[in-house]
Design a protein around this nucleic acid. Sequence first.
DNA 1: GGTAGACCTGGACGC
DNA 2: GCGTCCAGGTCTACC
Length: 292
Amino acid sequence: MELTLPARQPFSLPTVIHSHGWIRLAPFEEIQDLVGFSYIDQLESGKVIELHIQEAPGGVLVSYSGSLNQTDHSEIARKIFWMLGLDQDFSTFYNLAQKEPRLAQVPGRAQGRVLRSPTLFEDVVKTICTVNTAWSGTIRMVNNLVNLFGASLPADESRRAFPLPASIAASDEATLRSQAKLGFRAPYVLELSRKVAAGDLDLEALKAADIPTSQLRQRLLEIKGVGDYAVANLLMLLGHYDYIPVDTWAVKMVSNEFYNGEPVNRTQVEAAFESWGEWKGLAYWFWDWNNA
DNA sequence: GGTAGACCTGGACGC
DNA sequence: GCGTCCAGGTCTACC
């Protein structure tokens, strides 16, 4: 089956795919020949399917197989729309970016969208797995979670969807430490999964929450394991760009770019992009650091 | 409010 | 092969 979804222009699927490292985390898989990607998803009906997404005139083409009903098709469309931010409007940011040489490439490359997982739960878990570890560690942790707790694709049982909150919630801290190799993140992911599974935390409602960024930030900071860096990363994924995800890389790059290599702190990193206001996070994210 | 130390793992390095 | 050191954010206790 195929589904064509329109995207607000300008749009570039490769640009979204390479907007950050998410494409390298299971169950995403980049497909070079297709100039697109695949994603294994467990639908609300419980069915596990593989989605293939490639660019099409005016938007994207989504291909998949399986015995699906209209509810399933609608769910797939809704998820892809969210994952790729197909309706996001960056025209205001583009107008500002054109006046800054280090961001002049942004409109032409259709930069702005950041690849998302279908659920905020998945993005929060993955973000926690980026904390205090090398990228190779993040890939390993997410792979372990998918392989241990994800539902299998019927056609290929070695390939799995990202686990549902209930699946992780049914586990225990020792398993998450020893088998998923989450280390000190194990209690954070377990507590999050149990709260979401029990209905005590409705993460998905935050996607559409019409509240100020500061309030949204406060809600996300209540999640154990989510600190200043993680919350800024999650806000970016949610389409709020008022904060910069300051990690060691950001400190290094901003120090070299704006402070002559002098040591800088988080406040100084934020200050370097203060003039970008609500677009601060995007200005930092797509800044052409190599154009020195 | 600010700071120090613990948390955990893998990789780099020296022996 | 083994041991040591270091990088990577967040939490907690303490001042």
